[in-house]
């Protein structure tokens, strides 16, 4: 298990907290919370040694969607594709009016 921490200078405020995903094998859960501080991503991952991969996946996500949020991720060995999918899903939840 490894804990990772990243910061981003993104400024698009989000309106509500959201949660998606399950800490299943090869999967992860993602929580977005609104914040007025710097965007922060805290990751607990079961797969050690992938800091650079996480950094790349997150950078690509925030380049495209510069949301300002406090993000928590609990990951149980998901691939970058799955990570990106869940982040995008969380974003969709934000815009879901239900």
């Amino acid at each position: 298990m490894e804990k990772l921490h990243f910061n981003f200078d993104t400024k698009d405020a989000i309106s509500k907290p959201v949660h998606v995903g399950v800490v299943a094998s090869g999967d992860l859960e993602v929580i977005f919370r609104p914040t007025d501080k710097q965007t922060e991503v805290n990751i607990v991952t079961g797969s050690d040694g992938f800091k650079e991969v996480w950094s790349n996946v997150l950078k690509r996500f925030f380049d495209r969607y510069p949301i300002q949020a406090n993000i928590e991720i609990n990951d149980f060995g998901s691939t970058p594709g799955v990570v990106n999918l869940r982040l995008t899903q969380a974003l969709e939840e934000l815009h879901d009016e239900k």
Binding site: V23, E29, I31, N74
Partner: peptide
């Protein structure tokens, strides 16, 4: 999940918790 009531016993054993 947003209440942050996670298990305090998993991380000390190197296991990823769930919210």
């Amino acid at each position: 999940p947003l209440d942050n009531m996670i298990s305090p016993h998993l991380e000390p054993q190197g296991i990823v918790p769930e919210s």
